[in-house]
């Protein structure tokens, strides 16, 4: 196994939790709701996944429970920002604090425990032996699933009528309302979906990537996913590239330490890139060009 291939494999592994979270946030923001609570939702998913697997002994039960927990937990933000129309930034930040807080409290007894059931990588014969690109073909089922989900989500968003509705809700909800579509329902579904995928991403970390539960397990992955959503220009295919790129940065951080590059500097790298991406895309003219959903962050109220 050559070094390049194994680096690529590690980048994909590190990028997969980011990918799930980003895909969810893309749909959420396409529908006009910005969910800053991702870090909290992922943490909830990580704990639920770990605890469920620990209790039931089944890792798949763990993933399922994590998705459900992420989805249900994100409904808090959905209710506040869609039904009550409160400021989405405030509600999102509250969701982070609530999610990480609850998880630390309830997760105390799971700290330091380990699991029996493990996710096994499915190495594809022959293909995985190709130099460099072989890194694509030695993964667990979920990493493969992430790529498939991204393609399906891209197709739905841009090639189907469901996708038109989601994009339209994020651009001009009053037009969708006039067409007789329930704007609130579409947004609830998108936020829920975002929560489900966020929970899955969280559980991927606690069940597979760095198995175990501890406080601060997400290490800011939720925030990176938010930046990736913008980086990908709200496009599921772009999310794949972005997530693996940032996964690569995370992996390089470990490897370059051997050559005397300080770990803290590399640790900051994803955030530096995040800031650059966020500033570039915040210029008015870029905003229009990049396709920022026009109604992003704006609560919808039917006038009456």
């Amino acid at each position: 196994m050559d070094i390049a291939a194994s680096l690529l494999a590690e980048a994909i592994k590190a990028g997969t939790p980011l990918l799930f979270a980003t895909l969810g946030e893309v749909y959420c923001e396409r529908s006009g709701v910005i969910n800053l609570g991702l870090e909290g939702i992922m943490t909830i998913g990580a704990l639920t996944g770990f605890a469920t697997t620990f209790i039931t002994g089944s890792i798949w039960m763990g993933f399922l429970a994590a998705m459900l927990a992420g989805g249900v937990f994100s409904l808090i933000h959905a209710f506040a920002s869609i039904s009550l129309g409160v400021n989405q930034t405030v509600s999102g930040l509250a969701t982070v604090m609530l999610g990480t807080g609850i998880s630390s409290l309830l997760g105390k007894r799971y700290v330091g425990l380990s699991l029996r059931d493990r996710l096994m990588p499915m190495t594809i014969p022959f293909l995985s032996e190709i130099p460099v690109l072989g890194g694509f073909f030695r993964h667990d089922p979920l990493a493969y699933a992430g790529i498939v989900i991204a393609i399906v989500m891209w197709y739905v968003l841009f090639k189907t009528r469901i996708g038109i509705i989601i994009r339209a809700v994020g651009e001009k909800p009053e037009a969708v309302d006039a067409a007789g579509v329930n704007v609130y329902l579409v947004r609830y579904i998108c936020v829920f979906l975002g929560g489900v995928l966020g929970g899955l991403g969280g559980a991927y970390v606690s069940l597979y990537y760095t198995p175990g539960w501890r406080e601060g397990i997400m290490m800011g992955r939720g925030w990176i996913a938010l930046a990736l959503t913008i980086f990908s220009l709200w496009n599921p295919i772009g999310s794949v590239l972005g997530a693996f790129l940032f996964g690569g940065v995370e992996v390089l951080q470990f490897h370059l330490q051997e050559y005397g590059v300080p770990a803290s500097l590399l640790g900051a790298l994803p955030y530096v890139v995040t800031i650059i991406v966020l500033t570039t895309s915040s210029f008015g003219f870029m905003r229009r060009k990049l396709g920022v959903p026009a109604a992003l962050g704006k609560p919808y109220r039917r006038e009456s």
């Binding site: 509705i165 001009k172 037009a175 067409a179 007789g180």
Partner: peptide
């Protein structure tokens, strides 16, 4: 009803806008 301020989404095509209304 055709409103005074149009209920159209600028970034979608004509076809997509019509498809949207046929939900």
């Amino acid at each position: 009803m055709v409103h005074q301020h149009f209920m159209l989404i600028d970034r979608l095509t004509v076809l997509e806008n019509i498809a949207l209304s046929l939900k």
